[in-house]
Amino acid sequence: MLPLPEFTLHSPRTIDEALGLLAKPGAMIIAGGTDLLPNMKQGLHQPEHVVSLQHLAELRAIRVEQKVLVLGAMTSLAEVAEHEDVRKYATALAEAAGTVGGPHHRRMGTLGGNLCLDTRCRYYNQSQFWRSALGFCLKKDGEVCHVVEGGKKCVAAASNDTAAAAIALEAVLVIRGAQGVRRVAAGEFFVADGARNIAIARDELLVALEVPRVAKRVSAYEKLRRRGAIDFPLLSVAVRLDGSAVEVVVSALAAKPRRINGAQKLAATQVEAIAEAAARECNPMPNIDGDVAWRKQMVRVMVKRALVRAIGAAQPST
């Protein structure tokens, strides 16, 4: 078996206490641990201090406020997927959460952990032995990139299912740090750097995700994967419709989920044209799955399928 490296586990009871612990050098947050622990076994992170959020009850709730839906960072993905209000006001997010891993991952895994998920790459998410045999890469311990020859910046893929949905739904991340609370739009939270694609400092804490409640808004999520479960996205597509206005976000490409510019000038019903724009703007890389040509072809298909479902949901049922 791969042994877990040694570390000190902390279980703070308040957010302030947690923030204090996170100020220790080499500290990392553990929420559900479904990403952090396997990564630690593979030697990708060696935190000296691991700060658990399990006892911070205030991070666990889902609240329906007048203008927004507030989802605590520690809400389990299973709950996000099944919660009636989330399904209603943030359909794409509920659908996305429902496609993560398998039932066990969704029960243990949290929304916060998913939003802060480390980027993935087939040359990175491997054991220490494997990576040493290949030669380490930019993201961890090395100087080269195995995906882009001569590349100087890591292009590991955002592989979290909820990222595209959060962006499409114009969600806002609520972050606590030593300086207090700040809010960051999901569209700005994810940045184009595979080494770390999230705009949150290591001593900050994601507290909640706020999703606006907008009348008549509909959304949908489509995920490309090889099997019915326990597969990270090979493509991740979220669409949002406000009347005829449409937003399309595609992820699992590189570090930053991509908003399809070409879609913004089109009406939602121009399905083919929107799919075409997405196919033009998205370039899957050999960073996650071998069959890049297939993933490229599937951009159009997945965008179309998401749009068709969203349009269907927007029709008043007669």
Partner: peptide, 27 residues
């Protein structure tokens, strides 16, 4: 699904159960 691939450099393509896909109960 299954494909036991070795890269041209002799390294296993992904010696784990995310990269080497066996079907889940849904498949």
């Amino acid at each position: 699904f299954e494909e036991h691939l070795i890269s041209p450099n002799g390294l296993h393509r992904g010696p784990n159960l995310l990269d080497y896909r066996i079907p889940t109960s849904l498949d």
